[in-house]
Design a protein around this nucleic acid. Structure first.
Lengths: 104, 104
DNA sequence: TTGACATGCAACCAATCGGTTGCCTAATGT
DNA sequence: ACATTAGGCAACCGATTGGTTGCATGTCAA
């Protein structure tokens, strides 16, 4: 879980996920295309995404195809985000109340 | 948005949010209690959470009360997580199909 | 008023991060 | 066959991160 949060913390990595979301199964060089980074930098980012299980790869000859795995993202939504959405209204009204009593 | 992802990337900070989720409006020293960190470390984490707008604080005499703001978490759920959940089934079936053709 | 308590500020530190360069290996296509 | 293309590995670098220690400030209560 921590791996996933850490992997998502970087904007370049989120951009890579976006690219795969737009078109799945891209090679490394395809993913590099148009990015202001060297191929090796992208390789490192993809390795982190792979370690977090957000991306799965398949070697096909000399090419490495990258596929998005949406499961960990979904799990964060289910197991983490939702928890805070449950108490959301209560927390907000309490916060608002305290802010209004600021000058007591 | 990036601030929020970065803030959530650290387990200690997520633990602090958990604490506030369990009991809202705690002081700094209350939040420090039982943690294997100095008060100053916690202060820094809270500053990052505050900068990401995940926590709002109110000074009350010499105490500083911390309140959870669930809105940014909710926004990440809405604007980011959901995007990947939409294409989820398609992505998964495509991934599965490619994995099964691995040895062609 | 004075001591204890809650917090703030700043300097410092080692480890990690995001990125680079240089070189190497393995497929491919002509 | 051989030049080209796709990718891998490793060393290095500066910036950021997560944490510490030491000291200063403000507020409360006896």
């Amino acid at each position: 879980m921590d791996d996933v949060f850490k992997a998502l913390a970087d904007a370049s990595r989120r951009a890579l996920l976006d690219r795969l979301h737009a078109r799945n199964g891209q090679t490394l060089t395809e993913l590099c295309d148009g990015l202001a980074m060297t191929r090796q930098a992208v390789t490192k980012h993809l390795a982190i995404l792979e370690a977090a299980n957000l991306v799965a790869t398949i070697r096909h000859g000399r090419e490495k195809l990258h596929y998005l795995n949406p499961v960990p993202i979904h799990e964060i939504g289910e197991r983490w985000i939702r928890k805070f959405e449950r108490g959301k209204l209560a927390a907000l009204s309490e916060l608002k109340r305290q802010l209004e009593r600021r000058d007591e």
